[in-house]
Amino acid sequence: MAELLQFVIAGLKSGSIYALVALGFTIVYAATGAINFAQGEFYMLGGMLGVWFVSLGLPVPVAALCAVVSAAAAGALFELAAVRPIAGGDPLRIIIVTIGGSVVLRQLALHLFGPDELTLASFTPGPSIRLFGAAIERQTLWIWALTLVAVVGLVILYRRTAFGKAMRATSLRRDAARLVGIDARAMVTASFALAAGLGALAGLAVTPLTQTAFDVGAGIGVKGFSAAILGGLGNPIAAVGGGLVLGLLESLAAGYLDPIYKDAISLIVLLAVLFLRPQGLLGGSGKEKV
């Protein structure tokens, strides 16, 4: 029982991380109809920038905020300087630009931060918390709390604010959105920034547990993409569900079968969904993309 609980805790921990990265995929997909293959690199940037800001002497909360905001700015810059001029609005071209962009961002990180693994101190130091014989690291609580805040914040943005509704309107009916005065291209920039910020938040929150390096983006990109696909790519809430389910599957497979299955799970999920149900497992009608 304690063992199962431990696996579930571990699954929900990585699942939350996958959920944040998956949210980034769905947000850019809603705005452009394209997959942003550079999404994992912003996860990497979150951790790397966090480490860098801490090394400048900033307290952890301030460094974390600076890291997420700079990564979001980098996402906006990436869209303005590369995606928009090179790809225009064509989804296939956007995909190609983001693949190219991911290589550039990785090399840039290698030059700026070096090849070594880096780490951050836990946000709040202290021993793990015991729960029915299982242990929860304090940083895991931070991951859950930050994921919850991000998801609730996103729901408020999309459902309650004029800006968020303008983003939804643009993804539903681009021409109609322009006709009421929404700058549709600015909404695309905003979605890249938002996706980058969420990815960075995930990379930052997980760094005290896993360490980070310039090349962690590709791996998490596959996980986040699988989670988004599992959720149907269409719906942010389903993407969060996809992330949690993927995390749980991985953890249970690694725990009860063999640890070697852990990384295979996301690929199996990806292939299974693509073959069995191209519209995703958790996605509903898929009519509204955000």
Binding site: R168, L172, R173, A176, L179, K287, E288
Partner: peptide, 12 residues
């Protein structure tokens, strides 16, 4: 412009 086909934001 009231566009051809209305182009409403259907799920809103």
């Amino acid at each position: 412009l009231v566009p051809e086909g209305r182009l409403l934001f259907g799920p809103m």
